[in-house]
Design a protein around this nucleic acid. Structure first.
Length: 477
RNA sequence: GGCCCCGUCGUCUAGGCCGGUCUAGGACAUCAGGUUUUCAACCUGGUAACACGGGUUCGAAUCCCGUCGGGGUCACCA
């Protein structure tokens, strides 16, 4: 398999955002394509016109690009490559349907949706499984009556799906329907388009979610009816929520772009998703190149994986630490701007990045940690009561005087002032640093104190220190 | 309910094909200690799993059968 150049596809329908589960399926397809030097195709399954929107499609493409999952084929649109869209391929489905009808492999069914519904309900009431009985198989055309096109499926026998991950899976034909290829309005259904397109696009390996395994026998019959050999199938496990049901909004944010907006790195999302139902020994952190080099179906498991937001955060933290301060700063900028904050310059962002790189798990957390620089912070009463106490006032005043006279504002200039103050007043660093911290940031948790001073700047730092001192020394009413 | 898939620490997983080297390894989380200007990071240590029952075998997490549990799917949705 590593010799063969595979042709793989990811086929989302634009009826919602790209979610974590879809992204993982896309990633596995992409990884396998890149690993084998093959081809990765993106196909938009928009046959359901009523639920598909252009906005969702655009969002899916944006998410794919953000994750770095680039596709190789598709129509040229304005210099860039668009995905394939099923709505632009209706002629193909029409032609395939005509042929199947002509060859007697499909037939017209004039049962109305209402009739079918009634029969289904009746079957349910009698507690027998409902299955279309094929009553229109020999009926032929009924003039003036709308019809759906159904695929003829044998009553006896079994279909075998040879799954790369699950092995040989058998489905009795009696459990399968003569399923609908074309609706009575002439539009093709999902399962029909999928097969026509997988054939037409020369897909060698259908890698998709586990939830499609039960669709597969139906599709296998269609591949055969179309006279085409089967692709290989691999049904990958799904991603579950903490209660072990299909991951949904109930469990966590599911939209890929929501993670971008919260300050996750795309390489972290990719790394985390790759490790769900896949592993390569004990390795947890992978570069994109390592993933491409090491990914294979051999390392892929068969049981569903529960999404764990904590571990995603950890991976993200690891990825943030792997970045240079400049690169991290680069990624940080949009998150500052999103909050309406305008950082003074690159050096400032770089300093923030260095100060926070080991203290935050997302870019959003780093940005939030800089809040004290962009607005007058509210002073946390409990923190102030604990640290801004009369006993540190003399030392604070002493430090303030030193800072006012200081010629520089870098750590090298400021640190000796702290140390000499400590020595003169017999204080512990904690007492002084915490007091300054609360004075400058309003809180008792912040980036390292010298970074806080630098980020805030000389004037504002001095002003906040003076104000804090005034507050301590003011006679309590 | 029918059909199908799955079942190792709370979670992600290694090991299972080629039974002994597994008193089951790693990671996240968690707990304790260390370090420390806060918070982190970091270091050390700990708690924690082969779903259950049979069988095969000298020996089973690993092979077989069954049970139970979980999930998926049963549309003129995708």
């Amino acid at each position: 398999m590593t010799e063969e150049r595979l042709r793989l596809r990811f086929a989302p329908s634009p009826t919602g955002h790209l979610h974590l589960g879809g992204a993982r399926t896309a990633l596995f397809n992409w990884l396998l394509a890149r690993h084998t030097g093959g081809t990765f195709i993106l196909r938009i399954e928009d046959t359901d016109r009523s639920r598909s929107t252009e906005e969702y499609e655009a969002a899916i493409l944006e998410a794919m690009r953000w994750l770095g999952l680039d596709w190789d084929e598709g129509p040229e649109v304005g210099g860039s490559r668009g995905p394939y869209r099923q709505t632009e391929r209706t002629d193909l489905y029409r032609a395939a349907a005509d042929r199947l009808l002509r060859e007697g492999k499909a037939y017209r069914c004039t049962c109305s949706a209402e009739e079918l519904d009634a029969r289904r309900k009746e079957a349910e009431a009698r507690k027998v499984p409902f299955r279309y009985d094929g009553r229109c198989r020999e009926k032929g055309e009924v003039p003036g009556r709308p019809f759906a096109l159904r695929l003829r499926i044998p009553d006896e026998g079994t279909v075998v799906v040879d799954d790369l991950l699950r092995g040989r899976v058998e489905f009795p034909n009696r459990d399968l329907d003569d399923w609908i290829l074309l609706r009575s309005d002439g539009t093709p259904t999902y399962n029909f388009c999928v097969v026509v397109d997988d054939v037409g696009m020369g897909i060698t390996d259908v890698l998709r979610g586990d939830d499609h395994l039960s669709n597969t026998p139906k599709q296998v019959h269609l591949f055969r009816a179309l006279g085409h050999s089967l692709p290989r199938f691999a049904h990958v496990p799904m991603i579950l929520g903490s209660d072990r049901t299909r991951l949904s909004k109930r469990h966590a944010a599911t939209a890929v772009l929501a993670y971008r907006d919260e300050g996750y790195l795309p390489e972290a999302v990719v790394n985390y998703l790759a490790r769900l139902s896949w592993s390569a020994g004990d390795q947890e952190i992978f570069t994109r190149e390592e993933l491409v080099a090491k990914f294979s179906l051999e390392g892929t498991g068969k049981s569903a994986a529960v999404f764990n937001p904590e571990k995603l955060k950890w991976v993200n933290a690891e990825k943030m630490r792997a970045l240079s301060p400049e690169a991290l700063g680069e990624r940080l900028l949009p998150h500052l701007e999103r909050r309406g904050w305008k950082p003074p310059d690159r050096a400032w962002i770089g300093r923030l990045a260095v100060a926070m790189q080991e203290r935050a798990q997302t870019l959003g957390e780093i940005a939030d940690a800089a809040a004290f620089c962009f607005a007058e912070p509210e002073r946390d009463a409990r923190a102030a009561a604990k640290w801004l106490v009369p006993s540190v006032a003399p030392a604070l005043r002493d430090l303030l005087a030193g800072l006012e006279a200081a010629t520089g504002w870098e750590e090298a200039a400021v640190k000796p002032l702290f140390e000499s103050t400590l020595a003169r007043h017999g204080l512990k660093m904690a007492a002084l640093a915490q007091a300054v911290r609360v004075a400058l940031t309003g809180k008792d948790v912040s980036p390292p104190i010298y970074d806080v001073l630098w980020l805030l700047g000389r004037e504002r730092s001095l002003a906040r220190l003076r104000r804090a001192l005034d507050a301590i020394e003011a006679p309590t009413p």
